[in-house]
């Protein structure tokens, strides 16, 4: 459990980091919190020849609410979200979600953007960003470009990031007071990767659902939206429609089979988690 040899760089600016990525190409990996990368290197499942440690880039260490947008810099740790970072439904949701991410020591090091860049299908932040229609700001040789969350996740550990690029920031809309956000996940142990999770965002109008987004995580190769399940809520009282929405999510998903959960069990969990996430949203 010792990593293969690698070179180490600690740039001070995003430009330097991107230049290093350009020089070393596929060999290079970004090191932020290291909570996923370093263990996989110890198992030699990942063996980057070059590590570009971005922890000393002051420009990436920010977390602020600005014009209705939550701007999350690449060095923002999971623990930063344990108390609501902004008033309103999104800050409260992020605080509820954060507690489910691994264990306290890991939350001190691991980063929000690192989770999005790693794109583990069971990552809470990935499903959350998808449910909230976040935007990912990618830095490359030609400056920054924005990628919508829907376009970001391409497969297991695969994203829309191009060679030579790094994820610099994630932007989440700070939804207004007519929104309700909810979260539910099921894991074997506290802090484990979830076997299934659901994140919902509902806009209510006179108690009925006017807009709905439901994201599922932990069930397939990537987090996915459940548009049919969301559609089942539109125009309905959320409590009344929760079960039928949950049934649609279960019917529409394509869960994977692994040693922790056979596919039919995961489908059971999707049904329960979607319903519970909707209930969580109403209760919040």
């Amino acid at each position: 459990m010792k990593p293969a040899a690698f070179d180490y760089h600690a740039p001070r600016t995003v430009e330097e980091a991107v230049a290093l990525l350009a020089t070393h190409g596929e060999e290079a990996r970004i090191l932020a919190g290291g909570q996923s990368l370093v263990p996989t290197m110890a198992f030699r499942m990942a063996r980057p020849g070059v590590l570009v440690d971005i922890n000393r880039i002051p420009d990436l260490a920010f977390l602020r609410a600005e014009d209705g947008i939550l701007r999350i810099g690449a060095l923002t740790r999971h623990a930063a979200f344990e108390k609501p970072v902004a008033p309103g439904p999104v800050g409260a949701l992020l605080a509820r979600v954060a507690r489910h991410i691994a264990h306290a020591p890991i939350r001190q090091r691991g980063t929000f953007c690192g989770s999005l860049a790693h794109a583990d299908p069971a990552s809470e932040w990935c499903a959350t960003t998808l449910a909230l229609s976040g935007t990912l700001m990618v830095a490359g040789p030609d400056g920054q470009r924005a990628v919508a969350a829907e376009d970001w996740f391409q497969g297991v550990f695969t994203t829309a990031i191009a060679p030579g690029e790094m994820l610099a920031e994630v932007r989440l809309p700070l939804l207004g007071p007519d929104w309700r956000c909810g979260f539910a996940e099921f894991a074997r142990r506290a802090g484990d990767f979830a076997l299934a999770m659901a994140v919902v965002a509902l806009r209510l109008d006179a108690g009925r659902v006017a807009e709905a987004r439901i994201a599922l995580g932990g069930i397939g190769g990537r987090p996915e939206l459940a548009p049919d399940a969301a559609a089942a809520l539109i125009g309905q009282l959320p409590r009344d429609a929760a079960q039928s929405s949950a049934e649609r999510a279960a019917a529409g998903c394509d869960p994977q089979d692994d040693i922790h959960a056979p596919a039919d069990y995961r489908r059971d969990l999707v049904r329960v988690m979607v319903r519970r996430a909707i209930e969580d949203a109403i209760a919040a």
Binding site: F43, R188, R189, A190, G191, D192, F193, I259, H260
Partner: peptide, 26 residues
């Protein structure tokens, strides 16, 4: 919680503590 899972070919699928689910104090 705990189970060593072995594939048909004899490979062990629970070779880390992420997969061999030892309970914690929680």
């Amino acid at each position: 919680f705990e189970e060593i899972v072995i594939a048909e070919d004899g490979n062990i699928l629970t070779g880390t503590l992420a997969d061999y689910t030892l309970p914690s104090a929680m």
